[in-house]
C-alpha cells in the first residue's frame, strides 16, 4: 500500500499534559505507513478560552495555522488528534466560508503578518476519521498482530468531534470507533449511552462540583455497561476522566477505577507494540489491569438464551 501523507497539527496538550497521546499517535502512524508532517511553527488554537474573551483575534489565531498549513502542505489534508483543536480549525474554516464579512476581517488581520487564507483550501480532519475512513477498519484488521480478546471497551467520543458539525458520523450516536474497536478483536459495550456526553471541559477549574458531576455520570455509566476501560480520542476528556476520577470518587463516595485509554494506545496494543512505546504509565488510574485481561484465544461466544421450559407455550397456527 502506498504511503499516505498528511499535514499534522499536534496541539499544545499532546506536547504537555498528554504526551502519551502524542507518542502513541506517532507510533501508530509508523505502523500504518502514514506520514505526519508537522506544520512549521504552529501556534496554540486558543481552546475555548480565547473565544470567550474576544472573537476576532481568536479566529485570527486559528487562521494563522490554516494559512501556514496551506502554504506548506496545501495538497494534503490536515490531521488533528485533539478534539478542541479539531473543532477550532474546522469551525474557523467553515465559518470563513459561510460568512464572507468575517473572512474579510480575519484576512485583514492575517495580512499584518503577511499571511492570507482562502477558506476551503485545507481540509481539516480528525485523526480518528483519517484512520477509520482513509485507512479503514477492515484494513486495520489485517494489521492486527495481537487481537484484544477478552477486553471490553467503552468508546467515548465526547463533544467536539461529534458536534457541532457531524463531519463523519452521527451527532447523537456515532459508531465509527465502535466498529474500529470490534475490528481489533475487543468486545464493545452496547449500552454506554453517554458516549457523547460532555466531560466538563474547563469546568474543573471554575465550578468543580459541576464538572465532577458530569465525570461521575460518565464513569458510572461505563461501569454499569461492564467496561474494562473507556477509550477516548480527546486529551481534555482523558485528563478530566482520569485525573479527576479520584475527586469524583470522593465526592460521590464511589470506588471506581476505570482506566481511560486513547484510541491510539488501543490500536498500538493490537499491533503488538509494547505499552511503554505507547506512553502507558502517564495515567493516574493504571491501565495494567485492563491490559492483563487480554487473552490469546477469543472468549467463547455466549450461548443464545433458549426459552425456559416452564414458559408458556407459543400460540400455534391451526393447520
Amino acid at each position: 500500500m502506498t504511503k499516505k501523507t498528511y499535514a499534522y497539527y499536534p496541539g499544545c496538550s499532546l506536547q504537555h499534559g498528554n504526551h502519551a497521546y502524542g507518542v502513541s499517535t506517532e507510533a501508530v502512524a509508523r505502523q500504518l505507513d502514514i506520514e505526519l508532517v508537522e506544520i512549521d511553527d504552529w501556534n496554540c488554537c486558543g481552546a475555548t478560552e480565547y473565544m470567550s474573551i474576544n472573537r476576532l483575534p481568536a479566529y485570527a489565531l486559528i487562521a494563522r495555522n490554516l494559512a501556514r498549513a496551506a502554504n506548506e502542505n496545501g495538497e494534503h489534508d490536515l490531521v488533528v488528534p485533539c478534539s478542541a483543536c479539531f473543532l477550532n480549525l474546522h469551525k474557523t474554516d467553515k465559518q470563513m466560508k459561510e460568512f464572507p464579512e468575517w473572512s474579510e476581517k480575519i484576512n485583514r488581520s492575517l495580512a499584518a503578518g503577511n499571511l492570507q487564507y482562502e477558506p476551503g483550501t485545507i481540509k481539516v480532519r480528525h485523526w480518528l476519521e483519517a484512520i477509520t475512513t482513509d485507512f479503514g477498519s477492515d484494513n486495520l484488521k489485517t494489521r492486527v498482530k495481537r487481537p484484544l480478546y477478552g477486553l471490553k471497551l467503552a468508546p467515548y467520543y465526547g463533544c467536539l468531534v461529534a458536534r457541532p458539525d457531524s463531519v463523519f458520523d452521527s451527532t447523537e450516536q456515532p459508531t465509527v470507533m465502535d466498529d474500529m474497536l470490534a475490528a481489533l478483536g475487543a468486545e464493545v459495550t452496547t449500552d454506554f449511552s453517554l458516549k457523547t456526553f460532555c466531560c466538563g471541559g474547563h469546568m474543573t477549574q471554575i465550578s468543580e462540583e459541576t464538572a465532577l458531576g458530569m465525570i461521575h455520570q460518565i464513569i458510572h455509566n461505563a461501569v454499569q455497561a461492564g467496561a474494562d476501560a473507556i477509550v477516548t480520542l480527546c486529551p481534555m476528556c482523558q485528563l478530566n476522566l482520569d485525573v479527576y476520577q479520584g475527586y469524583a470518587n470522593n465526592l460521590f463516595e464511589t470506588d471506581y477505577e476505570m482506566p481511560i485509554m486513547f484510541f491510539t494506545q488501543v490500536i498500538g496494543l493490537a499491533m503488538g507494540l509494547s505499552p511503554k512505546e505507547l506512553g502507558v504509565g502517564q495515567e493516574f488510574v493504571s491501565m495494567q489491569p485492563a491490559i492483563k485481561k487480554i487473552q490469546d484465544v477469543p472468549p467463547p461466544k455466549p450461548k443464545s438464551e433458549r426459552r425456559p421450559k416452564q414458559a408458556l407455550p407459543m400460540p400455534v397456527m391451526p393447520e
Binding site: 474576544n54 483575534p57 480575519i106 488581520s109
Partner: peptide, 20 residues
Amino acid sequence: KTIRELDELQAILNEAKAIA
C-alpha cells in the same frame, strides 16, 4: 514552549484586536 515567529503572531493579534 515558545513559537519561532512570535512577532508575526503578535502583529496578527494586535491587528485583529484593533479591527474588533
